[in-house]
Design a binder for these strands. Structure first.
Length: 532
DNA sequence: TCTATCACGTA
DNA sequence: ATACGTGATAG
């Protein structure tokens, strides 16, 4: 495809740094019907007092979701992604157009998928509804784009595709796939980490930014629940072409497959009535994502991290995830755009959120900003530093032919912490790229949160748990269409956490590729955190 | 719910 | 040609 992102077109501007940007928002075009377009601008800004902003070069980065229209179609119904033991790709594929990168600077692009909220869902009566509390999050893993690290010129040259990313429900997955729980809602996030030589992960000024397109949120399932989603997949996924066909064809095809003169009506067809099923997200459920209605908001954040050395980054994994309280990321309300805030925040066009927050600042809760109200989804936990790490070192780097990514184990992000903070990563171990397994390693401490955005990687990396204080708040800027991001610098602090490395995965399996890292941190949102 | 397998299609 | 990505299906 083409790129899609363009659609947005908006230009955003480069924004700002951390805080400054209060205004940032820009809006773009939006087109999102859903939301009103309020301007995003307002929404965002928050600043953190005290923080210093540095420009880390991440300020002008904009990310556009490719094929956003298709994502929106799914989102309006309630996107479902199949998860299997062997790993299943996502469809629609997550592809982005990135602009604003320094052509000569190297960046690592990676994704993680964080819990969208803290509920377990069920699909009954043709609609999604909450059926209980979410299970503890699985180890957060990061999927490092195979081209990482690569120059800004490389990333900007064409769409950046994460189509090979796979989702699994196998908590012991040895392949490095992203592990999710069935019937739980998730939010994919994109992280761009500066990986310059001069700015390696480890270094203190590692800068990164996070972009979230709320229309890419989905519920993980082992088999499709809403027939409308099945149909959208069949109609749009080339690999499912075999299931397309006119009704007539369908009839014959089914018969043929069944060896009968007449086909049995597919279960899916029968199974559901046509009724509208609400999207989990939007609709009723709510809470889930913002759904359709408007809520989308993308947020992105930028951060810088400073951190310590790379090594440090590696370290400590966090622990396990528990998502204790936090989780909820988005409170249900949040998702919706319930109004204004959201609107404001939401970008019209895309719903992207950007984070920026520094953490250095410490702002405690301020974080609110963003999330605040309702609007946003939760910030997910963090990325892990791992990624960063990984990035940096690059075990994967290009060297490997394929680079695969490493997985690191990370902790999960807690919401609480989400905010800005940091994520920790684990290290990759790349030596071989081993994946890590997650489980065990986690440390208890929790909180590494990272915020989505802002954290510094380094910090992230290890951050130990950041004290709440640390969390930074993020700002959400949303750019509307564009994701904005802001970046901030965090100055660093080092947290020192111990780093721990993850054990390598020894398994015999050699995983093919690991592009995945585990996430350690989660971000906390200040707000939430506050709560906590 | 989840899994393994299948037929069919893409790449 | 091989490898592998699809949803459907049965268990």
């Amino acid at each position: 495809m083409a790129n899609g992102g363009d659609q947005f077109g908006l230009a955003e501007r480069p924004d700002s740094d951390c805080m400054d940007s209060p205004k940032e928002a820009k809006q773009e075009n939006h087109s999102f019907p859903l939301n009103s377009p309020a301007s995003p601008q307002t929404a965002s800004s928050q600043q953190i007092p005290g923080c210093t902003v540095e420009h880390n070069g991440m300020e002008g980065i904009k990310v556009f979701l490719h094929d956003r229209e298709l994502w929106t179609k799914f989102d309006e119904v309630g996107t479902e992604m199949i998860i299997t033991k062997a790993g299943r790709r996502m469809f629609p594929s997550y592809k982005v157009k990135v602009t604003g990168l320094n052509p000569k600077t190297k960046y690592i692009l990676l994704m993680d998928i964080v819990p969208g909220d803290d509920h377990r869902y069920k699909f009954a009566d043709n609609k999604w509804s909450i059926t209980g509390k979410a299970e503890p999050a699985m180890p957060g893993r990061l999927y490092v784009h195979p081209d990482s690290p690569a120059t800004g010129a490389h990333w900007s040259r064409q769409l950046v595709s994460f189509q090979k990313l796979k989702l699994t429900n196998n908590h012991l997955d040895p392949f490095g796939h992203i592990i999710l729980n069935s019937m739980h809602k998730y939010q994919p996030r994109l992280h761009i980490v500066k990986a310059d030589e001069n700015n390696g992960f480890g270094s203190k000024n590692t800068a990164f930014c996070t972009h979230v397109f709320t229309e890419t949120a989905f519920i993980a399932v082992t088999s499709y629940q809403n027939h409308k989603i099945t149909q959208l997949k069949i109609e749009n996924n080339p690999f499912a072409k075999g299931f397309r066909g006119s009704d007539d064809n369908e009839f014959h095809r089914m018969a043929k497959l069944q060896g009968k003169d007449y086909p049995v009506v597919p279960r899916s067809t029968v199974r559901q009535r046509a009724g509208p099923a609400g999207s989990p997200f939007g609709g009723e459920g709510r809470g889930l994502r913002g759904s359709p209605e408007g809520a989308g908001s993308p947020y992105s954040c930028d951060n810088d991290l400073n951190s310590s050395s790379p090594q440090e980054l590696l370290s400590p994994p966090p622990t396990h995830y528990t998502l204790p309280h936090l989780q909820h990321i988005p409170p249900p309300q949040g998702y919706h755009c319930t109004k204004r805030k959201v609107e404001e925040n939401c970008s019209p066009g895309n719903r992207q959120l950007s984070y920026k927050k520094p953490f250095a600042c410490s702002p405690p809760s301020e974080g609110e900003s963003y999330y605040h109200p309702s609007s946003y989804p939760p910030p997910p936990p963090a990325l892990s530093n791992n990624a960063a790490l990984a990035l940096t070192d690059s075990p994967y780097s290009s060297d490997m032919g394929q680079r695969q990514a490493c997985m690191f184990a990370g902790s999960e992000p807690r919401l609480d912490e989400l905010n800005c903070t940091p994520w920790s990563y684990t290290c990759p171990l790349p030596s071989a790229m081993t994946p890590i397994d997650p489980f065990p390693p986690y440390t208890p401490h929790p909180p590494y949160s990272s915020s989505p955005q802002g954290s510094r990687l380094s910090a992230i990396a290890h951050q130990s748990s950041p004290p709440l204080g640390e969390h930074v708040s993020h700002d959400p800027y949303q750019s509307s269409g564009a994701p904005t991001q802001t970046s901030q610098n965090l100055h660093t602090r080092q947290l020192s956490p111990p780093l721990r490395e993850y054990p390598r995965y020894t398994s015999s399996l050699s995983p093919p590729l690991y592009h995945t890292l585990e996430t350690h941190i989660r971000c906390g949102v200040p707000e939430w955190s506050a709560a906590s």
